[in-house]
Each structure stands twice: as structure tokens, then as C-alpha cells.
């Protein structure tokens, strides 16, 4: 991304200098010597016009393709990236590791490991912005947005909230601590939490009574969840969606809007009973019930 940035800077300086120099040159060479001076009539030259339409257009197409290719590569995280769950709340960041560690406004990650952030917000639109990693993505209430980065140098980097979110928007900052793998393992051990996210998800799963309907053998009133995460689901009106985080979240909060063909819509909505973090824990638990890609637990 930086090469594109410096190329654009060069381009800007070149054209600005070109225009300024031409203007100064014309101003000095053709300054008005006497009031009665009549400059020759302007002759219009079509080829000149065509050229300064074509050249900027070509440059623009080239810039667009370069920028778009970088963006498309950055939009899809690699397989098996380390998963971190982020919940933005008015003026603080909650970060959860799959192993259960929970941090506020701080994130400890190992170096040279692709990290994928799954983010949602509990109130207004925030924005997870780490200038050092050239990365920014809005965090929306009611939806999951995800982005990924791979730290290359250990150190502590700024974390900002880039989308205006109210009074202490400028206080909603933090740091990303990139550590060598050994320090990271040591850090994990230092504040190992009692339960991993999947385990706390399982505890929630039983406490809320989900397991009365979603039985492993399929005899319950709800669909089997084992090994279902990520697979295709066909609704009653023929739409088929992938059972990803967003689908699971909508199924928990708003089951009536996802009618399944051979199940009666009896599932109650859990809106208001589960917080965003608990939903993430439930999703981690459902993922851990076997899916194509096991969450990486180092």
C-alpha cells in the first residue's frame, strides 16, 4: 500500500509543480506591457485537448486497478487466521481471545501470525483503526464486520476509533502489543482464564436451555448444530445461506426471520437476554461443535 501511496504523492507533486511552473513562466513571459496590447487570437488545438483527456484517463485506470487489487487482497483473510472477537462499546474496546482472555483497549498478539478480527458494536458505529498496519474497518451495531492483518515487527502500536462516536470518541484509543511467540505464550500462561470462549459458550448454551431443542441426535425440536457451522442452509422459501457468524447471530436474535423447511418456528427470540459478547461465545461454542475449520487453539 505504501508504494501506491508514494507513487500517488510523486504524481501529485509532479503535476502541481508542472502547473505552478507553467503559470509562473507564462506570468513572467506574457505580462502586460501596455494597455493597448492586443494578444493574438487563441487558436484551438484539438490534438492537445485529446491528449490531456487521454493521459489522465490512462493514469486513472492504472491507479484504479492497482488500488483495487490491493484492496481485494486485503478483504479476504487467509485460511486458518487466528480469530479475535472485538466488541466496540461507547468509548472502549472489548477484545476476546478464543482461549478466553478478555482485554480492554489492549490486544496482545504474536508476530507473523495472520490475525482475523470479527467485530460488532453494542451502540453506535465505531471504527477499528491501526495506522501502523494500514488497516481500518467500521464496526457496526447489529452486524459483523471483519478485517485481518499480519504484524511483522514486535512493538506497541496505536489503536484509534476513526468513526465519530460521541463525547469521548477521542478517548477510545488503545494499543496493539505485538510480541515474539515465546513472550506471547508466556503472556497466555500469565493471565490464562478459567474457561475458553467455547467453554463459556457451552455453559451459556445449557443455561439458556438451547440444548433442550438442539439435541445432538436430531430428536429435538431444533436442527442439529454439530458440524453445521459454515455449511449451506436452505430456508423455507428456497433461499440458501451459509451458516456463518452473521447467520447464527440472526438465528439467535431473530429466529422468525429464518424459517426452516421442516421445523416449526417455535424458537423464542433471545434479544435482550444475551449481550454481544455472549453471542460471540455461543458462536465460538457452535463452531467448536465440529466444522470445516477448527478454531486454532495454540
Amino acid at each position: 500500500m505504501d508504494h501506491l501511496y508514494f507513487f500517488l504523492t510523486g504524481l501529485t507533486l509532479f503535476f502541481t509543480f508542472l502547473i505552478f511552473a507553467t503559470i509562473f513562466y507564462f506570468m513572467i513571459k506574457y505580462r502586460r506591457r501596455s494597455e493597448q496590447e492586443r494578444p493574438p487570437a487563441t487558436q484551438q488545438s484539438l490534438p492537445l485537448e485529446i491528449s490531456w483527456i487521454a493521459i489522465p484517463s490512462l493514469i486513472c485506470v492504472f491507479l484504479f486497478l492497482w488500488g483495487a487489487s490491493l484492496f481485494f487482497a486485503a478483504a479476504r483473510p487467509p485460511q486458518g487466521a487466528m480469530e479475535i472477537f472485538v466488541v466496540g462499546k461507547q468509548w472502549m474496546w472489548h477484545l476476546q481471545h478464543p482461549e478466553g482472555q478478555r482485554e480492554i483497549n489492549q490486544l496482545h498478539i504474536p508476530v507473523d501470525v495472520p490475525v482475523r478480527l470479527t467485530m460488532t458494536s453494542e451502540d453506535v458505529i465505531h471504527d477499528f483503526f491501526v495506522p501502523a498496519f494500514r488497516m481500518k474497518m467500521d464496526v457496526l451495531p447489529g452486524r459483523y464486520t471483519s478485517e485481518w492483518f499480519q504484524a511483522t515487527k514486535p512493538g506497541s502500536y496505536h489503536l484509534f476509533c476513526a468513526q465519530y462516536c460521541g463525547t469521548l470518541h477521542s478517548g477510545m484509543t488503545g494499543t496493539i502489543e505485538v510480541m515474539t511467540p515465546t513472550d506471547y505464550a508466556q503472556w497466555l500462561r500469565d493471565n490464562a482464564s478459567t474457561r475458553s470462549m467455547a467453554e463459556s459458550g457451552q455453559e451459556l448454551f445449557t443455561r439458556l436451555g438451547c440444548d433442550t431443542c438442539h439435541l445432538a441426535d436430531g430428536s429435538g425440536a431444533g436442527p442439529v448444530l454439530q458440524g453445521r457451522f459454515g455449511k449451506q442452509v436452505t430456508l423455507r422459501d428456497g433461499q440458501n445461506l451459509a451458516m456463518d457468524e452473521a447467520y447464527t447471530r440472526q438465528a439467535i436474535l431473530d429466529p422468525a426471520s429464518l424459517p426452516l423447511p421442516n421445523y416449526r418456528p417455535v424458537m423464542p427470540t433471545f434479544r435482550g437476554q444475551v449481550s454481544e459478547e455472549q453471542i460471540l461465545q455461543l458462536i465460538a461454542y457452535i463452531k467448536s461443535l465440529g466444522s470445516g475449520e477448527r478454531t486454532q487453539v495454540p
Binding site: 500517488l8 501529485t12 503535476f15 502547473i19 503559470i23 491507479l63 484492496f71 481500518k136
Partner: peptide
């Protein structure tokens, strides 16, 4: 003319997707 050229060309930074991710907001 001078400042508008400068302003317009920096707009290209924000039009191309990759640099806008870093420079937005």
C-alpha cells in the same frame, strides 16, 4: 488554479481503494 490542482490530485488518494483504507477519516 494552483491550490485546486493540489486539492484535486490528493483526491485521487481517497478515490483509490487501498490508500483510502488508511487515509479515510
Amino acid at each position: 488554479i494552483g491550490l485546486f490542482t493540489m486539492g484535486g490530485l490528493t483526491g485521487l488518494f481517497l478515490a483509490s481503494l487501498a490508500t483510502d483504507v488508511h487515509l479515510h477519516d
